[in-house]
């Protein structure tokens, strides 16, 4: 905050030409940052290997089925209704697994769209694509 007001009071004392040069510099810094951010993103996307994506999706899928089936099996175990909830759980687990996968792939789709405009600070370079 304090730095900011300092800067503005200083810039009022500058001549017209200097202000122009400064804003030009600012623009150049911004484009450079954006370029850097883009290459960072591209790099992180490259790191996002096909095998990584496959592993990510398959674990999400398997986890959904295991969770649903396990829950059904537990209910059967407690209630003594052996095949009923196991089968229901398998079906629901399958649905949950599909939903897990859809959720992950949806994020993958947006991460390439929101390349430059949504997040402009340079910290964003290590976020979206690398989520493997």
């Amino acid at each position: 905050m304090a730095d900011n007001s300092d800067e503005t009071s200083q810039s009022t004392r500058l001549t017209q030409g200097e202000v122009g040069a400064l804003s030009d510099l600012e623009k150049r810094i911004h484009t450079a940052q954006r370029e850097r951010h883009k290459t960072d993103l591209a790099e992180s996307q490259k790191r996002n290997t096909d095998m990584g994506v496959g592993l990510r999706l398959s674990t999400e899928f398997i986890a959904g089925i295991i969770a649903g089936t396990g829950l059904g099996w537990l209910l059967d175990y407690w209630l003594g209704t052996t095949p009923l909830f196991l089968i229901l759980g398998l079906g629901l687990g399958f649905a949950a697994a599909i939903m897990n996968v859809l959720r992950v792939t949806k994020n993958m789709g947006t991460s390439s769209v929101q390349t430059d405009d949504t997040k402009t600070d340079d910290t964003a370079g290590n976020t979206p694509g690398a989520t493997e």
Binding site: R56, I62, I66, L92, N100
Partner: peptide, 22 residues
């Protein structure tokens, strides 16, 4: 809602399986 709950319960499984399997 049931499917969402199962999806929520599957989180620790996918979280642990991914790290371990890799």
């Amino acid at each position: 809602v049931l499917i969402e709950i199962i999806s929520y319960l599957s989180r620790p499984i996918s979280l642990s399986v991914r790290l371990f399997a890799n």
